[in-house]
């Protein structure tokens, strides 16, 4: 089996917890955005909600992928029968590859959706770029770094937009949002380098956790500011 996971053994399971925290943050914000869409019918809120849901689904696929990889060996040892072991490996291999494929596809589609909110695209562009994402995902299975480079590029463009918004509307919330996305963007760099040393994976996951926690802080601050305006 082609090794696509470079996690140090001591980090097994920890990255799953980090990804679950990230998923929760994304879904909370997506839920809020979609609630606003149902009230105001502003399309941008719908797209933002969908983008975050796609990114959360990508992370959920990563959790599935890692879970099938980390807990496969333990399962084989418990069973012991040769035929049964092969069948278990086969099932968890399929789960691993499906998770790996979905992780890349859904994350890239989510990031592109988020990007497209701020940079209007014609339907032809959307079709073309979606096709490129799907094709790229299918044919770069072993070149994992392609996914991280593309993610970093999309995240960088999104972060630049948030940074611009921060300069236009300087306040705590816009600053926190720009900072959180900057850190999430930076986390893609160590992910691209995991083949050099497994600790890069730990660095990437840690940066990702900080980024998403900061995003949560930004969201809570947004709600607090909203309540404060009401009192004024």
């Amino acid at each position: 089996m082609l090794q696509l996971v470079y996690t140090p053994k001591w980090f097994y399971g920890e990255d799953i917890v980090i990804d679950i925290v990230s998923i929760i943050v994304l879904l909370v914000i997506a839920g809020f955005s979609l609630r606003y869409y149902f009230l105001s019918r502003k399309r941008n809120n719908l797209w933002l909600g969908l983008a975050f849901i796609l990114m959360a689904a990508g992370l959920a696929s990563k959790v599935l992928m890692n879970f099938s990889f980390y807990y496969k060996m333990e399962f084989i040892q418990t069973l012991g029968e040769l035929t049964l072991t092969y069948q278990v490996t086969n099932v968890s291999d399929n789960l691993f590859y499906t998770g790996y494929f979905l992780m890349r596809l859904l994350t890239l589609l989510g990031l592109f959706t988020l990007y497209a909110i701020y940079h209007r695209q014609s339907w032809q562009n959307i079709l073309l770029i979606s096709a490129l994402i799907i094709t790229g995902t299918v044919y770069t299975q072993s070149a994992y770094y392609v996914f991280h480079i593309l993610s970093m590029l999309l995240l960088l463009l999104i972060t630049l937009k948030f940074a611009g918004n921060c300069l236009k509307n300087p306040c705590t919330t816009t600053g926190l949002l720009a900072a959180s996305f900057s850190i999430i963007t930076i986390s893609e760099i160590p992910f691209s380098l995991v083949a050099l040393h497994p600790n890069f994976y730990v660095a990437g996951e840690s940066a990702q956790l900080v980024g998403y926690l900061l995003l949560l802080v930004a969201f809570v601050t947004i709600l607090k500011h909203g309540k404060k305006k009401n009192k004024d």
């Binding site: 105001s40 809120n45 948030f162 611009g164 509307n169 919330t173 816009t174």
Partner: peptide
């Protein structure tokens, strides 16, 4: 009505923060 305005303020702040 007050609760609605509070929700609306939160949502407007959200829109402003995300640049929507």
């Amino acid at each position: 009505g007050y609760e609605f305005v509070q929700k609306l303020n939160e949502m407007r702040e959200f829109e402003r923060a995300f640049g929507l």
